[in-house]
């Protein structure tokens, strides 16, 4: 469904992405792992054009784009097929829970208000937030805000949802509720590309894992192989550190 080849991105003289390629099929849940500063966020932002890559090609549903010279029109066309969940939620602060979900439908996609609200409520029910329709983001916990953000992503029926460390900003006791929503989505066959530090999620929910370091993909495998039979030394070390850090 999505194929990305040789993405590069520099900030000044620093190469944050140095030729990254990845492939996502419909129904895949791909976890992107890697130490801090390895370029995971930058990769996701380039894939959704919040950041314009220096070079790279993307094939989305069989259509190819040059990631550096892509037109604004194509960007907004692609964005209509995708959704993004941010580490710090980024709910619209001046909108209620319901409005947060309907806003994009009504304003960007011209869905009639009633249909949009119906869709939004269905999405909010899925994440267990339909009882807080009229709350403002500032009245919600981090976990609740992130669930609303996921509902906002879902409501537009995206072909893929990008997640950038959706649980990293949360208090430990709130992580579970967000992960369980994501697990449900995975079960329903939603295609997801997830930057995460949650090893359990990567191991048990995702079917593919990409391990990044220094702006490059070190290893890319299905998740069983990745954890049980990693090829690269660097990957083994990483998995070891993670496990020793936890046990």
């Amino acid at each position: 469904m999505i194929d990305v080849q040789n993405v590069t991105k520099s900030f000044g003289s620093f190469g944050a992405l140095r030729g990254v390629s990845l492939h996502v099929d419909k129904g895949d849940v791909v976890a992107i792992l890697g130490p801090s500063g390895s370029g995971k966020t930058t990769l996701l932002r380039c894939i959704n054009y919040l950041e314009i890559a220096d070079s790279g090609t993307m094939t989305f549903d069989g259509e190819s784009f040059d990631m550096h010279s892509i037109s604004k029109k194509d960007i907004s066309r692609l964005r209509r097929k995708t959704a993004f969940v941010f580490q710090n939620y980024n709910l619209f602060l001046n909108k209620t829970v319901l409005q947060n979900v309907t806003e994009g439908l009504i304003i960007a996609r011209k869905v009639p208000k009633e249909a949009a609200e119906k869709k939004a409520i269905a999405a909010l029910e899925k994440v267990g937030m339909a009882d807080r329709l009229d709350s403002f983001p500032s009245q919600l916990s981090g976990g609740q805000q992130q669930r609303v953000a996921i509902a906002r992503a879902l409501a537009a029926d995206p072909e893929i949802i990008y997640f950038d460390e959706p649980t990293s900003a949360l208090d430990p006791e709130l992580i579970g509720e967000v992960l369980s929503v994501m697990r449900d989505l995975a079960k329903e066959g939603m295609t997801m590309l997830v930057v995460t530090h949650e090893m359990n999620f990567a191991r048990n929910v995702s079917n593919k894992v990409i391990f990044m370091e220094n702006g490059q993909v070190i290893e890319s495998a299905d998740s069983k192989t990745f954890f049980e039979n990693p090829k690269e030394e660097r990957t083994k070390l990483f998995i070891q550190t993670i496990q020793s850090g936890r046990e």
């Binding site: 919040l50 994009g104 537009a156």
Partner: peptide, 24 residues
């Protein structure tokens, strides 16, 4: 992040400006 969230739900710069950023 308000602008970026707006982009990601498909809104244009001026739609985000008018409906999200200016009211705040």
């Amino acid at each position: 992040g308000q602008l970026e969230a707006g982009y990601c739900v498909g809104m244009s710069y001026w739609q985000i400006m008018r409906r999200i950023i200016l009211p705040q």
